[in-house]
């Protein structure tokens, strides 16, 4: 057990899967000698050699097309897309090819690919580096989308993702990379790909969140505890699939829910959660479903991120609104 950053937790997971399975391969732009632009793959090429950890030409569709081809010849590719905004260049390979492979061949050929990619706002990057793009991928049958909110989950979920025989889009939160440290077990452990986590138990209201917003929700819960308000926080961990059972169980107890996302509001994960509650568990509620999401503008340029990204203040305001309904 040692205190480790989100980024070191990911490096740990990659080290473990490279060591355990000789078929795993890590590749992408600058992941080799440079160890990745965030140093996520630091030391891995030195340790496992250039055959297993290697740099690619600068072309995202080429990177993921190569992953598809390696997957059908017996390899377990872990490609990196340097920033999630660049994934648009490769969307055919993710949605049009990898996610359909098992379906097309009835399992005779598959795409055991784990695509790692950083996303998320608050670090004042250049354009196309920070957008929350999960909404574009959660509607893709055959693809899992994983969004860890903390270092412990990041390591366990990444190992599960690599071991999974279907394609997984593993989204790493940029802001959390170095800002968050957890006690992380040294060896291997896994976190399941279809179970939400009750991050904090409470009885008055449920906040459903994922990614960096989980930490904002926990701040709100901590603060409201002083006001004798008991908040339950659910961390989805994976946004495809969404573990609705854990949500339904929670709102049966709290009867109130606020759904939080960093992405724009339109047609997002929050809308899917709200729809699932409406369809299956509406009678558990005694107030409308509250939603906190970013405005439906294009993702802001760096200078305006702070006024755009929903944070603890917006969550607290919405929680109180629903509590006072």
């Amino acid at each position: 057990m040692a205190k480790k950053t989100y980024i070191k937790a990911i490096t740990d997971a990659l080290d473990i899967v490279l060591d355990e399975d000789p078929k795993t391969l890590i590749f992408g732009e600058d992941v080799g000698k440079n160890g990745g632009v965030f140093r996520t793959t630091q030391g891995l090429q030195e340790k496992y050699g250039e055959d297993r950890v290697f740099d690619t030409p600068l072309a995202e569709s080429g990177i993921l097309g190569m992953a598809t081809g390696l997957g059908v010849t017996g390899w377990r590719p872990i490609p990196e897309i340097q920033f999630m905004g660049f994934s648009f260049e490769a969307i055919d390979q993710i949605v049009g090819q990898q996610a359909r492979m098992r379906f097309r061949f009835d399992g005779k050929q598959t795409s055991p690919v784990t695509i790692r990619t950083p996303y998320g706002g608050g670090t004042h990057t250049a354009e196309m580096h920070a957008d929350n793009l999960e909404n574009y991928f959660t509607g893709t049958p055959g693809l899992r989308v994983v969004m860890p909110s903390n270092p412990y989950d990041a390591k366990g979920l990444l190992i599960s993702s690599v071991e999974n025989n279907d394609p997984v889009l593993f989204m790493e939160n940029l802001k959390l990379y170095r800002s968050m440290k957890d006690d992380i077990p040294d060896g291997k452990y896994t976190v399941p790909l279809d179970k939400a986590n009750v991050s904090r138990e409470g009885t008055d209201i449920t906040i459903v969140a994922y990614g960096a917003e989980v930490n904002e929700a926990l701040k709100v819960a901590e603060k409201l505890a002083d006001e004798k308000i008991s908040v339950e926080v659910i961390d989805l961990r994976t946004v495809s699939p969404i573990d609705t059972e854990t949500i339904f169980k929670s709102i049966e107890k709290t009867h109130k829910v606020v759904v939080v996302q960093e992405a724009q509001k339109m047609a997002g994960v929050g809308a899917q959660v709200a729809s699932a509650i409406s369809e299956n568990a509406i009678m558990s509620l005694d107030a409308p479903i509250g939603r906190v999401a970013a405005p439906n503008s294009v993702y802001p340029f760096a200078q305006a991120e702070d006024i755009w990204i929903p944070g603890a203040d917006e969550i607290e305001e919405k929680v109180k609104e629903i509590l006072n309904y």
Partner: peptide, 15 residues
Amino acid sequence: AAYDEAAGVALGLKK
């Protein structure tokens, strides 16, 4: 798309 994938298949066969 097949050309992208062919590069991966070829690299896989080589490996």
